[in-house]
């Protein structure tokens, strides 16, 4: 330990000089959070696994073309236009693998920091609990977007390589240019991210309940699956519209002409309600929590 510079450790500006806090957007901590989430090997592995699916589907369809109506939605369209590989991959991944990845990131958010003790270090920096929660939520949503976007990009590239890429015939039968269809794909990506934002809020709330990140991840994933199972039981269709997973698959509305905005709005509203319930719940929980880890 050198005794070099007397700048640190000693007194700051002057006795009782109050520290001046910057206001406005807090990009430093947010960037740090993104680096943390997006450089983490486990998260990168999750993204890599997700990216295998469009490749797998693309190669399989190329090897043996499916009959019309076979397999998951959009699968038979892939042979006529590679862009549909993006939608097929998202359809395949949205029920399980995407929510799983999102559960891992959002469940980890607070519980992970509590588990290794870095939560207390951040709070005494000081990072206010509200700010921490905001940054954690934003980090989870960005991770959801990165997951979905990675699948979409890989699907796009594989589609371009293996299949034709001319004008796109939409589900409603209308034909639009490839460029216009790319815009639709971007909207699909935005919608899918928004659909996962509700789950992020649930995961973040669960994450404030425990100091065991794996527990928070598992609980969040289980909640997603429970919601989907409930959504598949017709006898309780009265509750279906209230399930957060119910509108996940509605992104097909974006592939019609005209776009089925009504279904999309309902989907976005559902997620908004879940976020509006679970983010404040997470805030209340973290605010009153004794940090003893």
């Amino acid at each position: 330990m050198s005794t070099s510079d007397a700048l640190i450790g000693g007194r700051s500006a002057g006795p009782d000089a109050p520290a001046v806090r910057r206001h406005g957007l807090d990009l430093r901590l947010f960037r740090s959070e993104l680096r943390l989430v997006l450089r983490r090997r486990r998260n990168l592995a999750l993204i890599a696994v997700l990216c295998c699916f469009p490749v797998l589907i693309g190669v399989a369809v190329r090897a043996s073309a499916p009959a019309n109506g076979d397999g998951p939605p959009f699968l038979s369209q892939v042979t006529s236009n590679g862009l549909f590989l993006v939608f097929t991959a998202l359809t395949v991944l949205l029920p399980f693998f995407l929510p799983l990845a999102v559960s891992v990131a959002s469940g980890e958010a607070v519980a992970g920091e509590a588990n290794i003790g870095t939560l207390r270090s951040l709070l005494v920096v000081p990072v206010s609990r509200t700010r921490l929660l905001g940054v954690k939520y934003a980090g989870s949503v960005v991770f959801s977007f990165v997951c979905a976007a990675s699948v979409a990009v890989v699907g796009l590239v594989v589609g371009l390589l293996l299949f034709p890429h001319g004008d796109v015939t939409l589900l409603s039968g209308t034909t639009i240019s490839y460029a216009d269809a790319l815009w639709r794909a971007l909207l699909v990506l935005g919608y899918v991210t928004a659909m996962l934002a509700g789950l992020c809020a649930i995961g973040l709330f669960v994450s404030t309940l425990t100091e065991v990140p794996i527990g928070a991840m598992a609980a969040t994933a289980v909640l997603a699956i429970v919601s989907e199972i409930a959504d598949s039981i017709p006898q309780i269709n009265a509750v279906h519209p209230y399930l957060f997973s119910h509108p996940w698959m509605s992104f097909g509305e974006l592939l019609r002409s005209p776009i089925g905005w009504h279904g999309l709005q309902t989907g976005l509203l559902t997620q908004l309600v879940y976020v509006a319930i679970f983010l404040p719940a997470a805030w209340a929980r973290l605010q009153s929590k004794d940090i003893t880890s």
């Binding site: 430093r28 740090s32 943390l36 003790g117 207390r120 005494v124 920096v125 000081p126």
Partner: peptide, 30 residues
Amino acid sequence: LPRVGALVEGPAFHPYLGGRDNLLRLDSGD
């Protein structure tokens, strides 16, 4: 708290980050 340096119940850092990255992480919160 910005005028208070604290070490509570032993050091706690992200295990897979280096020492500098860990400090940068904390510094980014200030």
